[in-house]
């Protein structure tokens, strides 16, 4: 993560000097600044699962290429978790 931030910290500033991206008319970079309970508690839940499974979403998908059963189970569960939040959020409207 540190290596990626070192590179992107610099390149982000260079790229954003452009008026718009190469293939689009406008930027889609998030602009929210509010620290919400959903942000903190969601991040906490993610961190717990990340440590328990040893995988975050990106490497989990790349790990599917190993054709081991573990990343397959993990990714399917992750998709179910995403659906589950969508279902719960239908009542709570946390990110609306």
């Amino acid at each position: 993560m540190v290596g990626a931030i070192i590179v992107h910290f610099i390149t982000f500033r260079i790229v954003k000097k452009r008026h718009h991206p190469v293939l689009d008319e406008k930027w889609h970079v998030p602009t929210k600044t509010e620290i919400t309970p959903a942000l903190v508690s969601g991040s906490f839940i993610f961190g717990f699962g990340w440590a328990l499974g040893g995988m975050c979403p990106g490497p989990a998908i790349t790990n599917l290429a190993s054709f081991d059963i573990t990343p397959i189970i993990f990714v399917v569960s992750m998709l179910v978790g995403m659906y589950l939040f969508r279902f719960v959020d239908g009542f709570l409207k946390l990110n609306k």
């Binding site: 993610f46 699962g49 040893g54 978790g81 990110n95």
Partner: peptide, 27 residues
């Protein structure tokens, strides 16, 4: 790759999916 039990992997995946969408992002 970790040698965790299937139940552990399922719970971890559920938490990662739920948490990342609730928290609007991951790593």
């Amino acid at each position: 790759s970790l040698n965790n039990s299937t139940a552990t992997v399922v719970i971890a995946g559920l938490l990662v999916g739920f948490g990342t969408i609730m928290g609007s992002g991951c790593t």
